[in-house]
């Protein structure tokens, strides 16, 4: 039997709901279906996931052939991209030709999928949920403090909180950056103007690499946050909906007065 822990006492589900929503009539058997992620967005997301993984993996196979980047000053290297153990662990051997082949084949899927995503979000109005506004930056800071357990309450949010809006918009811009810098180093003669615009061949290559590291960091944080948010949040990117409890007279927003009931 499901049970709930409130201040070291366990309650049955029914008891819990009675306490939690003291003044509201909660239906235990009925669920309200709330549409969360449109079908198109779910497709774009789940196509992008393996394709981006392939692009990063093949990208590392290409980079391996001339792995010269590092973070450091003078002769002191703080971080080398990458230590040999990195290639050994991820099984990236000397296969430049193979890496290039996959990279220049799957780039089309990455590009077309990304383009369709941008067109869809722009035309459907979904962009309003994603593009940050003035408040988002302050909110993102509050979300960070909340996530680090420094701040008690999460700030109020719509579909995405401020931090998510900034992250999901940045990742689209980074994808655009990867396409542009990628084109510049793929065709530096035919697209010489683009290459010059991005600071020349070598610099465009560094940008392309840095964006890839950015993608890796995004993926790590994204997966960690999804795990933290729990199963119910995760399943909505597969099913597209969230099943909410049905509460009659449920207030529109969380206010001070009904927060007390929960506490």
């Amino acid at each position: 039997m499901e049970c709930f822990l409130i201040y070291k006492r366990t309650y049955s589900k029914e008891q819990f709901y009675k306490i939690r929503y003291k003044h509201f009539n909660v239906s235990i058997n009925m669920k309200r279906i709330v549409k969360k992620h449109p079908l198109a967005i779910r497709w774009f997301h789940w196509i992008n996931f393996p394709v981006l993984t392939l692009m990063i993996w093949s990208g590392f196979m290409i980079y391996w052939a001339n792995g010269v980047y590092r973070i450091g000053f003078g002769d002191t290297t703080l971080l080398k991209f990458f230590p040999q153990s990195f290639y050994d662990t991820l099984n990236i051997p000397y296969r430049l030709g193979e890496g290039m082949s996959y990279h220049f084949a799957f780039m089309w899927i990455f590009f077309i999928n990304g383009l369709l995503y941008v067109l869809y979000t722009a035309l459907s109005g979904e962009w309003r949920q994603i593009v940050p506004n003035k408040k988002s930056f302050k909110q993102a800071w509050q979300v960070l403090l909340h996530d680090l357990h420094i701040r008690k309450q999460a700030p109020p949010q719509t579909k995405y909180n401020g931090a998510q809006k900034i992250a999901y918009t940045s990742i689209v811009l980074m994808g655009f950056g990867s396409v542009v810098t990628g084109l510049a180093i793929y065709k530096p003669v035919q697209l010489g103007w683009l290459c010059s615009l991005l600071g020349g061949y070598e610099f465009a290559r560094i940008l392309h690499f840095a964006l890839t590291i950015g993608f890796c960091l995004f993926i790590i944080v994204h997966i960690a946050q999804v795990i933290r948010a729990g199963w119910r949040n995760f399943q909505s990117i597969v099913t597209g909906f969230d099943a909410e409890d049905v509460v009659e007279n449920k207030p529109e927003t969380v206010t001070e007065s009904n927060l007390k009931i929960i506490q």
Binding site: K31, I33, Q235, V238, T239, A243, V246
Partner: peptide, 16 residues
């Protein structure tokens, strides 16, 4: 849209 618990599970399983 209101569904019963069973219907929600069914919908979820099909999607997965």
């Amino acid at each position: 849209i209101l569904l019963t618990r069973r219907q929600v599970i069914r919908k979820t399983v099909i999607a997965f």
